[in-house]
């Protein structure tokens, strides 16, 4: 690497970074704006943060969103893992190809269609068996699970396909019955995949506006729905404050995860080195 780096590459880097982060920086700066009008600077202030903490509506929406995201992530991980296992480990069964195709369909289906079809389903079910009577948290959670579990299934599927089957065979050879092998070997090895599936489902759910709008009922407003409706009715700067808080939380999470991964990587390298030096000692 020379001292003089290419000016071209450097400017491309700057442009790319600016493209990604300038909007967020503006948003953060404007969250400290005193002015009531979003786009006019009126001096520094924490006014909108105070306003935010007093707004019951926003807190309700946030709590609802988190509840849905938690339930969704948990159930989607459970169902998605089972689906992934069935696809990879149960050999050939009738309708496997169909199942494989159908499990990935929600990934490419336009959200509008998913939302509309789920709404129709809920209405029909409500007429037929009286459940769900009122649309709200339950229907949104179910709707989120249907598409989140597809993502989890894909993650689990790829992890399982990459995982050598001989570990499970070895456990069986040593006397483990199939269910024990699943609990002792397969699930622990799938844990990282399940964690990323859970996190992905959680974010997908927090993020979703379209499907939630379709299947929600009166009184159940998720955070994205609330923000969106605020934008249409005229934005108040407290949304900027909320967005800033979310950005900070996400940034802290990402940095912490990155740091943990780096530490693990280094530990692993040290372990390998240790194994190598031991061998030298033994053979010497």
């Amino acid at each position: 690497m020379g001292k003089k780096r290419s000016t071209f590459l450097f400017s491309v880097l700057c442009f790319g970074m600016a493209f990604l982060y300038v909007p967020m920086i503006f948003l953060i700066i404007y969250s400290f704006n005193y002015s009531k009008i979003v786009a006019v600077w009126g001096g520094w202030s924490l006014r909108w943060y105070a306003e935010l903490f007093r707004s019951q509506e926003i807190w309700d929406a946030l709590v609802l969103s988190l509840k849905i995201a938690l339930m969704n992530a948990t159930f989607a991980t459970l169902l998605g893992t089972l689906a992934g296992l069935a696809l990879v480990r149960f050999g050939r069964f009738k309708g496997r190809t169909l199942f494989t195709g159908m499990i990935t369909a929600p990934l490419v289906m336009p959200e509008v269609i998913t939302g509309l079809s789920l709404l129709l389903l809920f209405i029909t079910l409500g007429d037929l068996i009286g459940w769900p009577g009122e649309r709200g948290i339950t229907t949104i959670t179910i709707a989120h699970i249907t598409f989140s579990m597809a993502y989890v299934a894909v993650i689990i599927q790829s992890r399982l396909a990459g995982m050598a089957q001989d570990l499970e065979e070895a456990a069986m050879d040593l006397g483990g019955k199939p269910f024990r092998v699943l609990v002792d070997i397969t699930l622990p090895l799938l844990a990282p995949g399940m964690v990323s599936g859970w996190l992905l489902s959680f974010t997908l759910s927090l993020d979703d506006l379209v499907i939630a709008s379709f299947v929600s009922g009166p009184g159940a407003n998720t955070l994205p729905m609330l923000i969106y409706s605020r934008v249409r009715l005229g934005l108040k700067p407290d949304i900027n404050a909320l967005a800033t808080i979310i950005i900070v939380v996400v940034a802290v999470g990402v940095i912490a995860a990155g740091y943990l991964m780096l530490r693990q990587q280094k530990q692993r390298e040290r372990d390998m080195q240790m194994a190598a030096t031991d061998t030298v000692k033994v053979t010497a």
């Binding site: 050598a164 001989d166 070895a170 050879d173």
Partner: peptide, 27 residues
Amino acid sequence: PYERPVNMMFQSYALFPHMTVEQNVAY
């Protein structure tokens, strides 16, 4: 396989990565 009186040593060794040497042998 779990009811046969034979055991196998795999080409890849197939050691359980989440268990210690001791736990592997004890499994």
